[in-house]
């Protein structure tokens, strides 16, 4: 089935088959398992943190895109959904310069 990114015209329901939800579930579980083992590897702490955070974002993206079906929503809704995220970066980056500059 094709997965149109947004409905052909506003007001039309996107017509896509259900994504393979079980497969995504398997992915999420597997990624969690990998995370659990990476956390205790004898790697440098920074590397571990980066890998773990990367995987967490990956999982979060899977949930957002498929379970919350953002992939199939109109583009403006997708923009709206991620709009607050930069604010997190602004706040945290600005404040940690107090400690790592």
């Amino acid at each position: 089935m094709s997965h149109p990114d947004h409905p052909a015209s506003p007001g039309t329901r996107p017509t896509h088959a259900h994504p393979n939800y079980i497969l995504i579930w398997v992915f999420l579980a597997a990624l969690t398992a990998v995370e659990l083992s990476v956390a205790f590897l004898p790697w440098p702490k920074t590397v571990i943190i980066l890998v773990l955070v990367g995987m967490a974002f990956w999982k979060a993206a899977l949930v957002g895109l498929y379970y919350m079906h953002l992939r199939f929503e109109p583009k403006r809704l997708r923009i709206l959904a991620i709009a607050p995220l930069p604010l997190f970066a602004v706040l945290v980056l600005a404040v940690i310069t107090e400690y790592i500059w």
Binding site: L87, V90, A94, T97, E98, W101
Partner: peptide, 18 residues
């Protein structure tokens, strides 16, 4: 409006570059 809050904190001892 999201990127200016520090002007309330010039005297708070925060990082001068900030």
């Amino acid at each position: 409006g999201w990127g200016v809050w520090g002007h309330h904190m010039f005297q708070s001892g925060m990082n001068p570059t900030l």
